[in-house]
Design a protein around this nucleic acid. Structure first.
Length: 817
RNA sequence: GCCCGGGUGGCGAAACUGGCAGACGCAAGGGACUUAAAAUCCCUUAUUCCGCAAGGAGUGUGUGGGUUCAAGUCCCACCCCGGGCACCA
């Protein structure tokens, strides 16, 4: 490119942005939320993982959050807008294994890089509050929370079959298994392994987590996220009923939601892992059970066939006294309900399939409310109806029958009404290095002994051999493992598993409120001043993982007495993905546009404006370079208009002024409403484009007085979307910044009014003409004008006018026959 | 199978409470400026038909019905696409 003389009307994004970047960086208090006389507003984007460097796919969530933060400042709030790093995690460890770099060093390098990019984008973060979860100052509080959980009986250890990802070399929580595969390795099937693990009792809060969805979150969180959480918690009301093992009388407890069908139960089916199964089965049967368990662990994408095996034993139905066979079946899950079911083939599709296959009788006991009992059903009838052939309960409606049967079970002591949840306790142990050490010590004499609070943090050792193979690398670090028991002083071993990294992100937003506290995770009063987060923004992929863990943590913290609120996030917004060439941006797809490249070519402002303009923020958006050029042209047009007119003092014409000011006030209204109602920044930016188009049209006729109003307003309106350009224009207009501390412009409703009402004239709903009349013209008058209109005349001539609909200031529709 | 979204020009989209469908941008075409190009500025652009033209007539928001003076918007049935859950008893 050839050297050209400096043209002050050229929009040189690099020159402008680097100038302000420099100034902003030299002002550490610029974005400090220090004015507590203003109402608080806490806006937060989900904590990023420092994976390397940012690309334009990452940009979107921050562009949304920053626009909101700046707008809320301008609306007079004291805004908390922090940023930090979810710095523990597997990629760091894998980088260490593959490239022989220490996870800490790898992580630090990435943080430095990404922080530089965040700053270059001009986001309004208070970097003073920056946290990094891999620092002992942070993770010691994970350990502290662990001890609190232990004290309250919310942390426990048990041996269980767990999801093991061979690729990660560690176990996964249920929430981290997707389609039978690991959430990080989409094509790696998860294996079942029996391991001794730490669990947190999220099930103790299942009911409250569910209830607060309705009571506190509904209407403020996206429906689909709430639907996913409800589904995940999976509350189900039913009954637990004891069948008796024939011979010994040992109770076999089943869970059912349809106790009203129990007279139709023709067998009892146990999960193959059910403890009783091992007792009842012979050697051959146990082999079949093992087959079923293994077959299920390796289940591929498709369904598995129903498989069953008769134990040779019988159980007695407590209502009918009938003797039914006991089977094991691969479709009965040990982890849900009681791990045993009664099969009612006539009224449950799965039971129908199973019993059909094995020739077990099918006995209908429910008839449709307005029908008869189907004696030979071709398929299960799963609906509620009227109970038949059920002794004293015959003739009752299903619901009533359930209530009375539950009562009977309770009175006679063989069962009760019961609620079951799908959600299971959160397994937090991980057999990896780069995470928070679990603060307990195993003593041969005293068993599991918590590390005393005064000894926290248990610091992650630096010198560790990482292999990624099977067990925690910490187990091989003698200096770490070998300790004295805090209770008896004898030789003991440290726990070598680390915590799931979702622990780190479950409470970080509290830490921002008091980021440098060295005696507590945070000060309760400081947190109370900011929590709940007013607006949380992030990807929908965390709908059940992070967002349910954080809700759980908040409830526990409340019960500990740290805070008073029960929900962490008042409002949640989930932004759409950035798509390029029809696919989500990712390294493996090779469609990544680096943020640095984009910034160099177009500037941070253009990137932000385009990402907000191309689609409403909750929908996926397509990145195209030509689209970004459009956003760049728009900013250039604004820049040139302001620079050209900053020092002109023209006389102008009242008509041009009126048209331009009308557009200005309409735009202020539009952008304000978009912020306050639905965040459709695409239409806000479209409105700003319309404004600049009008200003170009009217430029020659504008007066100095009009310009004095228009130019500063333009800079302010641009502030949330293109902060660099806004600041530059503000300065060129001779104003003192920063823009985001100025009051948001207000509009005058009277000035937004058009001169005249544009009335559409329709005949039978078809547009035949239009009319310009003063606002408030009477219905009578409009009707008269419409009927007399020369454009309308031909369409009604010779026809009978049946009716005339008049919508004042809008439309007249003449109905003719 | 169940639960959420969604289907509008060549493309991304707008139309918020039923009242002119397609704002705004991209792409495309034309023009101005320029020796030329880039940049910039201006104009055209859903579609079919009639007309030399000014202009006019029709069609059009996944499909089929319905409600209404009036439907992208409301109701019923269905098709397609995306996401979530999926032997949860």
């Amino acid at each position: 490119m050839e050297e050209t003389a400096q043209d002050p009307t050229r929009y040189d994004h690099n020159q402008i942005e680097l100038k302000w970047h420099e100034r902003w960086n030299n002002d550490p208090n610029l974005y400090k939320a220090s004015d507590s006389t203003r109402p608080k507003y806490y806006v937060l984007e989900m904590l990023p993982y420092p994976s390397g460097s940012l690309h334009i796919g990452h940009l979107r969530v921050y562009a949304i959050g920053d626009a909101l933060a700046r707008y809320m400042w301008m609306r007079g709030h004291n805004v908390l807008h922090p940023m930090g790093w979810d710095a523990f995690g597997l990629p760091a460890e894998n980088a260490a294994i593959n490239n022989n770099r220490h996870p800490r060093e790898w992580t630090q390098t990435n943080i430095t890089q990404m922080k530089r990019q965040h700053r270059r984008m001009g986001f309004s973060y208070d970097w003073d509050l920056e946290i990094s979860t891999c620092e002992p100052e942070y993770y010691r509080w994970n350990q502290w929370f662990f001890l609190k959980m232990l004290e309250r009986g919310l942390a426990y250890r048990k041996r269980a079959l767990l999801n093991w990802c061979p690729e990660c070399g560690t176990v996964l929580a249920n929430e981290q298994v997707i389609d039978g595969c690991c959430w990080r390795h989409e094509s790696t099937p998860v294996e079942q392994r029996a391991l001794e693990q730490w669990f947190w009792k999220i099930t103790a809060y299942a009911d409250e987590l569910l209830r607060d969805i309705d009571e506190k979150l509904e209407g403020h969180w996206p429906d689909r996220v709430l639907a996913m959480q409800r589904n995940w918690i999976g509350r189900s009301e039913g009954s637990e009923i004891d069948f008796k093992l024939e011979g010994t009388g040992e109770p076999i407890r089943v869970f059912t939601t349809r106790v009203d069908t129990i007279y139709g139960a023709t067998c009892v089916i146990l999960a193959p892992e059910h403890p009783l199964a091992a007792q009842l089965l012979d050697e051959n049967g146990r082999a079949r059970a093992k087959q079923m368990i293994d077959g299920r662990a390796q289940k591929g994408p498709g369904d598995i066939e129903k498989d069953g095996h008769f134990t040779g034993h019988y159980a007695v139905n407590p209502y009918s006294g009938e003797k039914v066979p006991i089977w094991i079946g691969n479709f009965v899950l040990m982890g849900y309900g009681t791990g045993a079911i009664m099969a009612v083939p006539a009224h449950d599709e799965r039971d129908f399939d199973f019993c059909k296959t094995y020739g077990i009788p099918i006995r209908p006991v429910i008839r449709p409310v307005d029908g008869v009992l189907d004696e030979n059903p071709k398929a299960a009838f799963p609906d509620d109806g009227i109970v038949e052939r059920s002794g004293e309960f015959s003739g009752l409606a299903s619901g009533e029958a359930r209530a009375r049967m539950n009562k009977k079970a309770e009175t006679e002591g063989f069962g009760k009404a019961a609620v079951t949840y799908r959600i299971k306790d959160w397994g937090i142990s991980r057999q990896r290095y780069w995470g928070t050490p679990i603060p307990v010590i195993h003593c041969p004499k005293d068993g599991v002994v918590p590390v005393p609070e005064k000894d926290l943090p248990v610091v992650l050792p630096v010198d560790v051999q990482l292999t990624g193979k099977g067990r925690s690398p910490l187990a091989d670090v003698a200096a770490f493992v070998n300790v004295k028991c805090p209770k008896c002083g004898g030789d003991a071993r440290r726990e070598t598993d680390t915590m799931d990294t979702f622990v780190d992100s479950s409470w970080y937003f509290y830490r921002y409120c008091d980021a440098h506290n060295s005696t507590a995770p945070f000060d309760s009063q400081k947190a109370a001043a900011w929590i709940p987060v007013d607006q949380y923004i992030g990807g929908v992929e965390h709908a059940i993982l992070h967002l349910i863990y954080s809700r759980f943590f908040t409830k526990v913290m409340r019960d500990i007495g740290l805070i008073e609120n029960s929900e962490p996030f008042k409002r949640l917004f989930t932004q759409g993905m950035v798509v390029k060439d029809g696919a989500k941006m990712s390294k493996s797809k090779g469609n990544v546009v680096s943020l640095d490249e984009m910034t160099e070519r177009f500037g941070a402002d253009t990137g932000r404006v385009f990402e907000l303009f191309a689609a409403p923020p909750e929908k996926d958006m397509d990145w195209t370079d030509t689209g970004a050029e459009g956003a760049y042209r728009f900013l250039g047009r604004v820049f040139r208009f302001v620079v050209r007119n900053a020092s002109r003092r023209p006389d102008g014409s009242p008509e041009a002024d009126r048209r331009a000011l009308r557009k200005l006030h309409q735009t202020i209204r539009k952008v304000t409403e978009d912020f306050d109602n639905r965040w459709h920044f695409n239409t806000s930016i479209a409105a700003l484009m319309e404004l600049i188009n009008t200003l170009y049209d009217e430029e020659a006729g504008l007066s100095a007085a009009a310009l004095d109003q228009i130019l500063p307003s333009l800079a302010l309106l641009l502030g949330p979307f293109a902060p660099y350009l806004a600041e530059e224009l503000w300065e060129q207009l001779g104003r003192k910044g920063p823009v985001f501390r100025q009051p948001w412009p207000t509009y005058d409703e009277a000035l937004t009014k058009e001169d005249a009402a544009d009335i559409v004239l329709q005949v039978n709903g078809k547009v035949r003409g239009r009319l310009s009349v003063p606002f408030g013209t009477s219905e009578e008058e409009l009707k008269k004008l419409a009927l007399a209109d020369p454009k309308v005349q031909p369409s009604i001539e010779g026809k009978q006018v049946v009716k005339v609909i008049v919508v004042p200031d809008k439309l007249v529709n003449i109905v003719v026959k």
